[in-house]
Design a protein around this nucleic acid. Structure first.
Lengths: 308, 308
DNA sequence: TCAATAGTGTCTATTAGACAGTATACC
DNA sequence: GGTATACTGTCTAATAGACACTATTGA
């Protein structure tokens, strides 16, 4: 079955074929990884009573070279010929943040022809979720001009155009990327095209807002994936420190989903994913909050609910 | 902001830089697209009373060249330097099946170093869903040895290994690919690695079962994606003809999800996605079934539920 | 007539949403 | 004491699961 001993039309076995094989000379795209590195920042509350605000942040670097000199870009780099794409992603994450272990997920591979004006470049984007406390310890932040940006996104408009045998659905989404010095507001169009049995989804950058390449699309895609995974996986805990309060966790959900949640329902929902500790926070002029830790799904409570 | 007029450290504007830019000579991986083309087959019932069975199928081709000469592989090909990855995917779909419009979705990009013994090849996998009636009309099935295989998958085992600060979760999944002449049974290991804050998912081919390259992984990933999308999107309709009965639709869900569904609940759930017609099937020794068509989400019923 | 499927009504269990009410720290 | 948050109890609405029951055909 494996074809090891079969001979091809030239009478070669697989071993002979591989020994004589010379890669062709046709042009190949360059391959890069681009890293959407997300974290959550707690910013100091306005007064002693209020709790800390949470904001979702993404790491961008300021380009020091053409093209897009001076623009902000998602950090990334070329995939070496002797490393896997995953390894390249880990390497980039480490070099940008100093973080070794993080939630890491491949998102999407961007392969439009003109996306880099220099040459054909295909970029494989990854999402990394890092918890702030790790970042403070680990070195990180290369020599290059790397900065965290607060991220949010909103739907600007949604338009449905009927077609002879289907429809086109176009949503315009504004991303806001902001820190003390810079505010970028790219706009991305997400188009769903249905015709007969066909159905494809595509994204266009309507306004780069000062972001390099097609990175506005990448960021929009990353936020979308982060949001949807938040709702049906444990992904949020990758953004939390070892110990956290349920209110903090809820605020992380809220800032990423962009909507308020009801405390009672939220607590019911995540009850099985967390484990209480004996510790409490003592900060602010209000009732202290119990600290929890993440409970891996395996460690189910094996003691049955004790009944009378 | 765009850096068009800025000069870099060599005193070049972006235009000057691009004019003088020469792509480096470093080695680049080759880039291919690999197409997981799924369809659903209705096979003739055993006797006049029973309804047609549905099976999920995937298209594989028999390799006529080294490496893996004679093995079955997911159809695919190189991405041209002047076409986008999406275009390459559409081109491959068309050349293998003759189908122009289909549900098409990028799945994952496979970039392990040794996955092709000839040279470094990175493969971007896509999933295409085509409805059988299209296939019969359109030409398709190239000169090459292409065959449809019934697909199913089952979890063989699940093992959780505790680690100092986390755990490793390993599931072994057997895929069964079968037609009248061939039966392949690759086994794939899906490992979730958690350590501290880190969390990554990886797949290994435990037993290729006669499939070329790492295509067992690709197929397993494709089935997983198809299954999960079936539950929260309209993806199933891409596998259906224009007109279908709700029982047929349910059987498609059942064969893909690998479990029986309750008719009442199923009908409630998809009620908003379909639109009834005045037509009925008349086949088999039992009550005829009303034919439905897919209703795009936009065309909500604008007539309010009529009440008294 | 009857086997096999189509389709509906309804009871129950589970889950999500809403919101009031109690608890407790700090200034 | 008053404020801001922590946390719980409970009512209601919506959804999913179970299953019985009716409807309709071709041989």
């Amino acid at each position: 079955m494996s074809g090891k001993n079969k001979v091809d039309r030239n009478g070669l076995t697989e071993e002979e074929f591989l020994r004589s094989y010379r890669p062709g000379d046709y042009e190949r795209p360059s391959l890069t990884v681009d890293m959407l590195i997300f974290t959550v920042l707690s910013s100091a509350p306005e007064n002693y009573r209020r709790t800390a605000d949470k904001t979702l942040q993404v790491l961008l670097i300021r380009r020091g070279e053409h093209p897009f000199l001076g623009s902000w870009a998602v950090p990334g780099g070329f995939v070496g010929i002797h490393e896997s794409i995953d390894e390249a992603a880990k390497r980039e994450l480490k070099s940008e943040t100093g973080v070794d272990h993080a939630y890491l997920e491949q998102l999407y591979t961007w392969g439009e022809v003109g996306r880099d004006p220099r040459m054909r470049v295909v970029s494989c984007s990854y999402m990394a979720l890092v918890d702030r406390s790790q970042l403070l310890l680990q070195a990180g932040e290369d020599a290059d001009d790397a900065r965290w940006f607060d991220v949010s996104s909103e739907i600007l408009s949604e338009e449905i155009t009927p077609l002879p045998d289907g429809e086109r659905r176009e949503r315009r989404i504004r991303i806001v990327l902001e820190n003390e010095d810079v505010r970028l507001e790219p706009v991305v169009q997400v188009t769903e095209h249905r015709e007969g049995h066909g159905r494809t989804l595509s994204r266009e950058v309507e306004d780069s807002g000062g972001l390099a390449f097609d990175h506005a699309k990448m960021i929009q895609y990353g936020i979308e994936r982060l949001r949807s995974k938040l709702e049906y996986t444990d992904i949020a805990f990758a953004l939390m420190p070892q110990l956290f309060t349920l209110s903090e966790l809820q605020r992380v959900y809220e800032v990423i989903l962009g909507k308020p949640l009801l405390a009672a329902a939220f607590r019911r929902k995540i009850a099985g994913r967390v484990e209480e500790t004996e510790e409490y926070t003592r900060e602010g002029g209000h009732r202290p909050s119990k600290l929890y830790r993440y409970r891996q799904a395996g460690e189910e409570l094996d003691r049955e609910e004790e009944r009378i």
